[in-house]
């Protein structure tokens, strides 16, 4: 396979994929692939652009902040290799913030985060594609953006193209694609690059009926692979119940429930 997992397992500490933010703590669990301890993310809301800017350069005056949002509030959890975890919660509960931190694009205000492994996010399937380039070129473009080498991309290309099943369109500029076609290529890319951590944000409903079936089948394959950790963000309980074994319920940035999926869904549905 493309990413040699054996080797990766053996070299967790040395691996370039290992990412530690803030202060590192002693490793508690050797199987832990994502470790949040006391993670807080604070967004400050300012009165205007001027006060926002002044505060960023270190000048904080009274009355310029109109509010503080704790998007994640002392969040702690450990996710192990091979788990499929659903993040449940209302809008604004902090699910996306937590996933952004896992994806490494946002940094926590305080707390420690350990991530081991390549993260692939199905958060926005169409982001990063360029309409002027062809589908094939966009595969390469996105692969480069994720840090894959040219050889790795070359290996993956046939799988992605076969999964997306776009026919002749794969060599046409992407601006000629329909919305569904773009999403298909995005989905095909995300599930074909053999991620170690896959983040899925309610994007299973892609394309037509036939393609949707294929997506669900592929998702099931990924989830049963014990090396891949899958994180779901969803409001729909049925999807969570079908794919996940564990549920974490968030409310106002805090973890309010963490346990088996059926209990988590019951908790979520009775409380929210």
């Amino acid at each position: 396979m493309l990413f040699n997992r054996q080797q990766h397992n053996g070299n967790l500490k040395k691996s370039s994929e290992t990412r530690t933010q803030n202060i590192s703590v002693e490793e508690a669990d050797s199987d832990a692939i994502i470790e949040f301890s006391q993670v807080s993310k604070v967004y400050r809301l300012y009165k205007n652009e001027r006060s926002r800017f002044l505060s960023l350069i270190g000048i904080r005056r009274k009355g310029t902040t109109v509010g503080v949002v704790n998007a994640n509030d002392e969040l702690s959890f450990i996710i192990r290799r091979g788990e499929a975890v659903a993040f449940l919660g209302q809008n604004g509960a902090g699910k996306s913030t937590a996933l952004k931190i896992i994806a490494g694009v946002s940094h926590p205000t305080s707390g420690t985060v350990h991530i081991k492994g390549r993260v692939s996010a199905l958060l926005d399937l169409k982001a990063g594609f360029d309409g002027r380039l062809t589908g094939r070129e966009n595969i390469s473009l996105r692969g480069q953006a994720l840090g894959l080498t040219r050889a790795q991309i070359k290996d993956l290309e046939p799988t992605i193209i076969k999964f997306a099943d776009l026919g002749l369109y794969i060599d046409q500029p992407m601006r000629t694609y329909s919305k569904g076609m773009k999403a298909r290529l995005g989905f095909a890319f995300a599930v074909s690059i053999n991620p170690e951590i896959l983040i899925v944000d309610e994007t299973l409903s892609v394309g037509d009926r036939r393609f949707k079936k294929k997506c669900v089948r592929r998702m099931r394959e990924i989830i049963t692979d014990e090396n891949v950790t899958v994180l779901f963000v969803t409001h729909a309980s049925e999807i969570a119940r079908e794919f996940c074994t564990r549920g974490i319920v968030l409310d106002q940035g805090k973890k309010v429930f963490d346990g088996p999926i059926s209990e988590a869904i019951a908790f979520y549905e009775s409380n929210f």
Partner: peptide, 9 residues
């Protein structure tokens, strides 16, 4: 912006 907000680059 894709490289900033969607992936870790």
């Amino acid at each position: 912006s894709y490289l900033v907000v969607k992936v870790r680059f």
